[in-house]
Write a protein that binds this DNA or RNA. Structure first.
Length: 546
RNA sequence: GCACCCGUAGUUCAGCGGAUUAGAAUGCUUGGCUUCGAACCAAGUGGUCGCAGGUUCGAAUCCUGCCGGGUGUACCA
C-alpha cells in the first residue's frame, strides 16, 4: 500500500509537477483491491479531462509493481487489482508501532467504593482497558492505573446507613458472609441515598458523616470505614478481573489528592485561579468549559482540586509520561476541559499531554430486569444471563467466554454516543456478537486439529481464496486506523466481516480430505491467527473450542 | 439562554477528514445439515440518510440555519 502511494506520488510529480497527498481506498471488491481518486483531485489544476489524467497515471503505474490489473472507471477513478503475490504479502504486514518510545498513563477503571458497581462502570472499564491494549500494540509503554472516590457525600450516605444498621459494632459487620458483602453495601448506599432525599435531619447527619471521611478522626468510624472500603475494592477488583481487564499497577484514591491539589491551586492564585469569598475559582468558560469552584469557601478541596491533585500524583509517579488518559462518562466532558486547561496552566510541562475521552451513557432497554439491585444491573447477574444462554446452546459457560461476549457488545459501537444495552440481544449469541467470533475461531481451530499434514503458509492464491485473502490483508490497515484514533470499534467491524468471509468460504470449500487440504489448511491458519490477534487487542479470549 | 454530543431500514448500529447501485446485524418470509462444529450459510423483505439552503464535476459525509432528543452550566463527584 505504501509502495503504491509512493509510486503514484512520483508519477504525479513527473507528469504534472504537482505535490499531492494520495489516499488509497478499499472499494467494492468488484472494482479491485484499492482505488484512488487522484485524477479527480488533479483535474482542475491540470486542466484536463479527469479520465484522461487517470489513464495517463494508470499506464505508468502498471509497471511499478505487482498489479494484476489497473483500470480507469467512472468519472476517473483508478482501480488497482493486486497480483497474487502482493495480495498474499499484505497478510504478513504488522500494524505500525506509532507510539514507540512513548509512555502513557491510563485509568482503566474508576468505580467508587461505598457504592454499587454497575454496567456503566463496566463499560468504561472495558473501553479504557481496550484503549490501553491499542496503545500497547502501537508500542507505547502503558501504565494502567485506577482512581476511586473514597471521600465525600456518597461515603456519608453509606456510612449513615451502616452505622445505623450495626449500631457501630464492627463485629456485626464481620459476621456478614463474604458473598453477601456486596449486596449489603449496595443496600446500605441505597438506604442512605433515600434518607438524604426524604429527611432534612438525615441529610444533616449524612453531611457530617461525609466530612468525617476526609479526616477519619473517630476510631469507630475509621474502623468501619476501612473495612467497608476494603470490601469495596475487593469487589471492584474481582469484577474488573472478571470482565477481562488487565490488572492495574497503581490505585489512586481521592483522599490522597486533597493535599497536593489544594497546594497547587493556592500556589497558582492569583494567576490561574481567582479568589472570591474565600473560594478558589477557575474561569473555565474561557476554555470551552464553565467557571467552577475548586476550593470551597470552607477551605476544602472540591472535585476539581482533587482531579488536579491526581494529575500531579501521576506526574510524580510517572515523570516520563507523554500522555495521561482518563475515560469518563460524557456528562463530565465539559468539566474535564476545565480541569485540563487549569492543569496545563499550572503545570506547563503537561501542556498537550492530558486527555479525557468522554463516553456516552449506557441505556438499558426495558425488558426483563428482574434481578436488578436498585436501579442498576449487577454485572454478576449479566454473567449469569450469558451463562444460561450459552448452556442452552450446549456450550460450556466459562467466564473467559462470557466476558468476551460482553466486551464485544460494548466495543462494537463508536465511542461517544450512548450505548443501548439490550440484555436479550446481547445474550442472543447470533449475528454481530462476540460469540459469533469466538465460535468462528473455535471452528477454524478444529479444522486445523483435524488436518493431517504440517500447516504452512499458503504460497499462492486460488480464485476461490481471493476474497478471504484480500480481507486478511486489510487487517493491519484496520488496526492502524484503530491505533491512531484509539477507537476499538473499527476492529470489531473488521473482525466480523472477516469471520463472515471465512464462513462463506467454509460453507463452500472443504478442507479436510480435499486434494487442496495443505493449501487450504494454511489459509485457515492465517485466518485463525488473524482473528485471534484481533480479539486479543479487544481483550477477548479466542477459545480453541466451546 | 449559552456550550457540547446525537438524529442513517420496524429495532440496534457501520459508513474509514467527499465519489461508482447507501451497508451489516436483528426482525419477518423462504431454502440448505448421512461430508471439516447449523452459535453457520444463501435468497427475499425493508431507507425521501431529521428538515431546508449553500459549496462542488460529485454531499449521509463539508458549511450555515432550523426542528427533535440528550448532557453540562461555581462550593456533591
Amino acid at each position: 500500500m505504501e509502495k503504491t502511494i509512493a509510486a503514484i506520488i512520483s508519477i504525479v510529480q513527473e507528469l504534472y509537477s504537482i505535490d499531492l497527498r494520495v489516499q488509497l481506498d478499499r472499494p467494492d471488491p468488484k472494482f479491485g483491491d484499492y482505488s484512488t481518486n487522484v485524477a479527480l483531485q488533479l483535474a482542475k489544476q491540470v486542466g484536463k479531462n479527469p479520465r484522461d489524467t487517470a489513464t495517463e497515471i494508470a499506464d505508468k503505474l502498471k509497471a511499478t509493481g505487482d498489479y494484476a490489473d489497473v483500470t480507469v472507471a467512472g468519472p476517473g477513478f483508478i482501480n488497482l487489482t493486486l497480483g497474487d503475490k502482493a495480495l498474499l504479502d499484505l497478510t504478513r504486514v504488522n500494524p505500525g508501532q506509532i507510539r514507540q518510545g512513548q509512555t502513557v498513563v491510563i485509568e482503566t477503571n474508576n468505580p467508587n467504593p461505598f457504592k454499587a458497581m454497575h454496567i456503566g462502570h463496566a463499560y468504561n472499564a472495558i473501553l479504557a482497558d481496550t484503549m490501553a491494549n491499542l496503545l500497547a500494540v502501537s508500542a507505547a509503554t502503558v501504565r494502567r492505573v485506577s482512581y476511586h472516590g473514597d471521600v465525600g457525600t456518597h461515603v456519608g450516605k453509606s456510612m449513615w446507613a451502616i452505622l445505623k444498621e450495626t449500631g457501630g459494632d464492627i463485629e456485626k459487620l464481620e459476621a456478614i458472609p463474604v458473598d453477601e458483602r456486596n449486596i449489603f453495601m449496595n443496600k446500605m448506599y441505597a438506604i442512605g441515598a433515600q434518607a438524604a432525599k426524604d429527611s432534612d435531619e438525615a441529610k444533616k447527619e449524612i453531611d457530617e458523616l461525609a466530612k468525617q471521611s476526609f479526616v477519619l478522626d473517630d476510631p469507630t468510624y475509621k474502623a468501619i470505614y476501612d473495612m467497608c472500603a476494603m470490601w469495596s475494592y475487593e469487589q471492584i477488583d474481582r469484577i474488573v478481573a472478571r470482565i477481562g481487564n488487565v490488572p492495574i499497577e497503581r490505585r489512586y484514591v481521592e483522599s490522597e489528592t486533597e493535599k497536593p491539589g489544594k497546594e497547587l491551586i493556592v500556589a497558582n492564585t492569583p494567576g490561574v485561579f481567582t479568589q472570591s469569598d474565600g473560594a478558589y475559582i477557575f474561569e473555565g468558560s474561557k476554555y470551552g468549559s464553565f467557571d467552577n469552584v475548586y476550593i470551597g469557601s470552607h477551605g476544602n478541596g472540591l472535585y476539581g482540586a482533587h482531579d488536579m491533585g491526581l494529575v500531579q500524583l501521576k506526574y510524580a509517579d510517572y515523570p516520563q509520561l507523554d500522555q495521561s488518559i482518563v475515560v469518563t462518562g460524557g456528562e463530565q466532558a465539559a468539566y474535564f476541559k476545565g480541569v485540563i486547561a487549569a492543569s496545563e496552566l499550572a503545570i506547563p510541562e503537561l501542556k498537550g499531554k492530558l486527555f479525557n475521552y468522554p463516553t456516552g451513557l449506557v441505556k438499558l432497554t426495558t425488558g426483563k430486569m428482574s434481578s436488578r439491585t436498585g436501579d442498576v444491573v449487577a454485572i454478576d447477574w449479566l454473567f449469569d444471563e450469558f451463562g444460561k444462554a450459552i448452556t442452552e446452546r450446549g456450550g460450556v459457560a466459562i467466564d473467559e467466554i462470557i466476558a468476551g461476549a460482553l466486551r464485544y457488545q460494548f466495543l462494537k459501537v463508536k465511542i461517544g454516543g450512548d450505548v443501548v444495552f439490550d440484555v436479550n440481544e446481547a445474550v442472543s449469541l447470533t449475528g454481530n456478537t462476540g460469540s459469533y467470533l469466538q465460535y468462528a475461531h473455535a471452528r477454524a481451530r478444529r479444522i486445523l486439529d483435524k488436518s493431517a499434514g504440517t500447516v504452512s503458509y499458503p504460497i499462492d492464491v486460488r480464485d476461490e481464496d481471493r476474497m478471504l485473502v484480500r480481507k486478511l490483508g486489510e487487517y493491519h490497515e484496520v488496526v492502524n486506523r484503530a491505533l491512531e484514533s484509539l477507537e476499538p470499534h473499527h476492529i470489531c467491524t473488521y473482525l466480523f466481516e472477516l469471520a463472515q468471509e471465512f464462513n462463506r468460504y467454509y460453507e463452500q470449500y472443504r478442507v479436510i480430505g480435499d486434494e487442496l487440504e495443505t493449501h487450504r489448511a494454511g489459509l485457515v491458519a492465517v485466518y485463525a491467527d488473524t482473528l485471534k490477534a484481533g480479539l486479543a487487542i479487544l481483550g477477548i479470549h479466542a477459545p480453541e473450542r466451546m
